[in-house]
Design a protein around this nucleic acid. Structure first.
Length: 859
RNA sequence: AGGCGCGUAGCUCAGCUGGUUAGAGCGCCUGCUUGACAUGCAGGAGGUCCGCGGUUCGAGUCCGCGCGUGCCUACCA
């Protein structure tokens, strides 16, 4: 006999079942099972120092739907969770939380304890102390995150957790790096690099974002050094001995190394090959021709600086120009001496006088100063013309990126572009069209991947250098650790053959000061979780993995870099499927974001509506589809869950007698459910969880509103008809609970526990053979006809204002095909509609009902 | 500027390979204590399927053009 609560409710189900699942290891991965039944998921490790938002709940639910479906289909689901604690967001949080800053020159202080409250002045601490604080804080954050995921019902195996800064991740990151280095696929190069002047670190192309910024065109005169080359045309000064450029960055005039125009631009033909003089500084610079110069833009003549933007880098490289760098890593203009090599000027004294007013200023302040100087010298035509333009920023940065020449580590990507496109074609995308995002990105790559960051809380490069007699690092003389020494930190570990006191001294060694880009570690999540190079047995069973779920915003970063690393190390795709979730949009159809102040705290949301209700909303947002944040949908989900409790209570409230399923309405119901099951299975196999939910949900409501209403009186008896109804209803309930288990894991588990042993989440996904008790004929029409006649009678009741409590007589006109089903459904239809009797004629094509109140009993 | 989505009821969305009078839920209106559920049930109103062309016996669905909207990429002179 089922044990059913008097008043079933959703409240408290999350607590009850999360602890039970944990105790029973319901979602534990069984590594003893063979590879062909494993289903491995590489789920995004959330940035643990960031805040969780509704988007996380949305997309992690999608992943969990697939995980639960695959588990019920008999797969051994490998579903680990990671924490992305590596990198800048954590550093920032630690700095603010404790009021500290990292100074790598300081020695480790084992006695350091952070202040209870951050002081006004940031305390400088050593790198090991700083990293320890990062680790401490992220551990706290991880607990909060894990609690939320458990509360949401994500069926992760929590014994498989990893952190991207953890020992395991560090070892694999360093090992993979050394392999790339040995293979010649990682290299170090001194090159112009995108640089954030606040974080003082290099950043990669993938981390850029454009922001619209107000700016202004300044029309600036360059003197034509050779007076013979007179030219005409627009943009050229009337006097003929000056040419004009438009620039938004006049402060870079001292860094100008050439002017450039399109080779076919008639206005500037005479200038090509000649020199002009920069204003204020009188530095001779050549006028070059290059097809990238746009005749339509500005005056058609551009100033090439080292370096104002990425186009400058292209011009500089392709035209073989010298470097005249003025922006320092901190963003300030560095001191320069005019007249010396590389800074030749026809008037060094006045150049120096001008520049001395700029040195030490930030770019923005220097700009204002240069404008002032240009106005005074008469080299600026008119006033600056305000424009808005897009400027490249580091996605986490506050000031526009500069381009600074520095020594950085790179991983080769450019030579693998075609191979990566091939991998993108090989990968199954859900939805299919997301592949275009990947191809778009790969086709647009303009350089190898810069992986070094001048930061602290990250995986160090496992490299030392010999120190030259002059005390500087000899970057050509690398000292590498053995693989069995990993993970290591070159700032504290000592290379073989050296002693600690040789650090930094001539003839000694020094560690590479940089850490890896977070994506250099995050791109290895399949390796970290599958035990690459550490657990060959596990690796063979889980890699390549089956599913990478993620948002479309990180296709260019996470997905791309993971495909690259897997291609380089294993010559394979890291996973066979990528399921891409959409955005969560606010009611104005804008992406939910903190800055808009429209972010809802996920935990509050789960507590308000219930986890199953929130999951329902998330599940309705199909793969890749941007979905509105809609509490209304969560209420619908909640109603569904409550309805499931109540309907289950009703079905299980009377389980006897049971017998063969003989009645047409029962058989038709089961036959329809068999179709629903097949459809839902097919949809989920294709990662279309929302379509599967739609089918299942629609059937469930029909089951409640029509089927149960039709058979509840027959079922109340104890004859063969009741036995048929009981058997059918219980089978249907079992199937529906399992079909809904991935979506409503708490509710379905609760009901399952009333009458079944074990977890519904470990039960078998319904299959066709379960419906054999109703096979052999096709009674689906009978069940549909019963519904149609019921609808017609209900409409009459409503029109004539006859409540259900009023017994009626019905005169029915039914379409001819009903002749074959009517006899089999008549009893249920009449009972289910409180109709005492009926007269029926078969004609026409639509169902017509006329009803009148039946005479009172005994009349 | 290119690429990719999207545009269907007041709102949020389904409508697969083209096939009767275009669907669901929410909201709205009108009723109903019917023995699981008023956290419920029944009924109803509500649509030029963005526009214009084309293919077809037939187009919400396929093709072209346009408009609107969102994202990705490019655009820093």
């Amino acid at each position: 006999m089922p044990t059913i609560p008097e008043k079933p409710a959703l409240e408290g189900l999350e607590q009850k079942w999360t602890s039970r699942w944990q105790a029973d290891r319901t979602y534990a991965f069984d590594r003893a099972r063979p590879r062909d039944v494993v289903y491995a998921i590489d789920t995004p490790p959330p940035t643990v120092s960031g805040s969780l938002h509704v988007g996380h709940v949305f997309s992690y639910t999608h992943t969990d739907l697939i995980a639960r479906f695959q588990r019920m289909r008999g797969r051994s689901v490998f579903y680990p969770m990671g924490w992305d604690d590596n990198g800048l967001p954590t550093e920032r949080r630690v700095q603010n939380y404790y009021g500290v800053r990292c100074d790598p020159s300081l020695p480790f202080d084992p006695a350091f304890v952070p202040p209870a409250k951050p002081g006004k002045q940031a305390i400088s601490i050593s790198r090991p102390n700083f990293v320890a604080l990062c680790a401490q804080l992220t551990t706290e954050d991880e607990k909060v995150f894990e609690h939320l995921w458990r509360h949401l019902g994500v069926s992760v195996d929590w014994s498989l957790t990893y952190a991207t800064i953890g020992r395991r991740a560090q070892r694999i990151s360093q090992l993979a790096f050394l392999r790339l280095l040995h293979a010649g696929q990682a290299y170090q190069l001194e090159a112009p690099t995108l640089w954030d002047v606040d974080f003082r670190t290099a950043v990669a192309q993938a981390e850029l974002e454009d922001r619209e910024l107000p700016g202004a065109y300044h029309r600036i005169a360059f003197a034509i050094a050779n007076r013979e080359s007179r030219i005409d045309g627009s943009g050229i000064g009337e006097s003929g001995n000056r040419v004009f450029i438009d620039t938004t960055r006049p402060e870079l005039i001292p860094a100008c190394v050439a002017l450039v125009a399109h080779p076919d631009d008639p206005r500037y033909q005479p200038l090509f090959g000649t020199n002009v003089l920069t204003p204020l500084f009188n530095v001779p610079v050549p006028v070059k021709a290059h097809p990238l110069a746009d005749p339509e833009k500005g005056t058609g003549l551009a100033m090439i600086c080292t370096f104002g933007d990425v186009t400058d880098v292209v011009w500089w490289r392709e035209l073989g120009l010298p470097v005249r760098a003025i922006i320092q890593p901190n963003g300030a203009l560095r001191p320069v001496t005019f007249g010396g090599a590389g800074w030749e000027s026809t008037d060094a004294a006045s150049a120096q006088a001008a520049y001395d007013q700029l040195a030490g200023l930030s770019a923005v302040k220097a700009r204002a100063k240069v404008v002032e100087l240009l106005k005074a010298s008469g080299d600026m035509l008119g006033e600056p013309r305000p424009i808005t333009h897009n400027v490249k920023f580091y996605e986490k940065g506050d000031r526009p990126l500069e381009i600074v020449t520095s020594r950085q580590w790179f991983i080769k990507t450019m030579e693998f572009r075609d191979a990566l496109l091939g991998r993108g074609a090989e990968l199954q995308w859900h939805p299919e069209y997301m592949r275009a995002r990947f191809e778009n990105w790969v086709n647009g790559l303009n350089g190898d991947w810069c992986v070094s960051r001048q930061r602290f809380f990250g995986v160090p490069f496992p490299v030392w250098y010999r120190v030259s007699p002059d005390g500087t690092a000899d970057v050509a003389a690398r000292l590498l650790p053995r693989e069995d020494q990993l993970p290591m930190d070159p700032s504290t570990d000592v290379p073989d053959g050296f002693t600690a006191d040789q650090r930094g001294v001539p003839g000694g060694f020094v560690g590479d000061p940089d850490v890896m880009d977070t994506w250099a570690t995050s791109s290895l999540t399949p390796f970290i979780v599958c035990g690459w190079e550490t657990d060959p047995e596990l690796f063979a069973k889980t890699f390549p993995m089956h599913l990478r779920p993620q948002g479309h915003d990180i296709i260019r970063t996470w997905l791309f870099s993971t495909v690259l690393r897997s291609h380089l190390e294993e010559d394979a795709l890291p996973w066979s499927n990528a399921a891409i979730s959409g955005w969560v949009l606010d009611p104005d159809r804008k992406k939910m974001s903190k800055s808009k102040g429209n972010v809802v705290t996920p935990m509050a949301l789960l507590e308000e509506h219930g986890s199953d209700a929130v999951r329902y909303w998330a599940a309705k947002g199909g793969p890749g589809v941007d979905t509105a944040f809609e509490p209304g949908q969560m209420k619908v989900g909640r109603r569904l869950a409550i309805k499931l409790l109540n309907a289950s209570k009703f079905v299980l409230g009377k389980t006897e007698p049971v017998g063969p399923v003989t009645e047409a309405v029962d058989r038709g119901m089961l036959q329809r459910l068999a179709v629903v099951t097949a459809d839902a299975t097919r949809h989920l196999d294709g990662y279309d969880y929302s379509a599967a939910l739609r089918d299942t949900e629609a059937f469930f409501w029909w089951f409640c509103d029509d089927y149960i209403e039709l058979v509840k009186r027959r079922r109340a008896g104890d004859d063969a008809g009741a036995a048929s109804a009981n058997a059918a209803a219980q089978l249907a309930l079992s199937v529906m609970l399992r079909l809904m288990a991935p979506y409503l894991p708490f509710t379905t588990e609760e009901v399952w526990s009333w009458w079944q042993s074990g977890s519904v989440h470990r039960s078998a996904w319904p299959v066709a053979s379960e419906f054999d008790v109703a096979s052999g004929d096709d009674r689906r029409d009978a069940s549909l006809h019963a519904s149609a006649v019921t609808a017609a009678i209900r409409q009459q009741r409503s029109t004539k204002n006859l409540g259900f409590g009023v017994p009626v007589r019905a005169a029915l006109t039914l379409p001819v095909p009903y002749e074959s089903t009517w006899r089999a459904i008549e009893r249920d239809v009449l009972a289910g509609n409180n109709a005492l009797d009926s007269t029926v004629t078969f004609s026409g094509e639509i169902v017509l009902a006329e009803i009148e109140p039946a005479p009172p009993a005994g009349a």
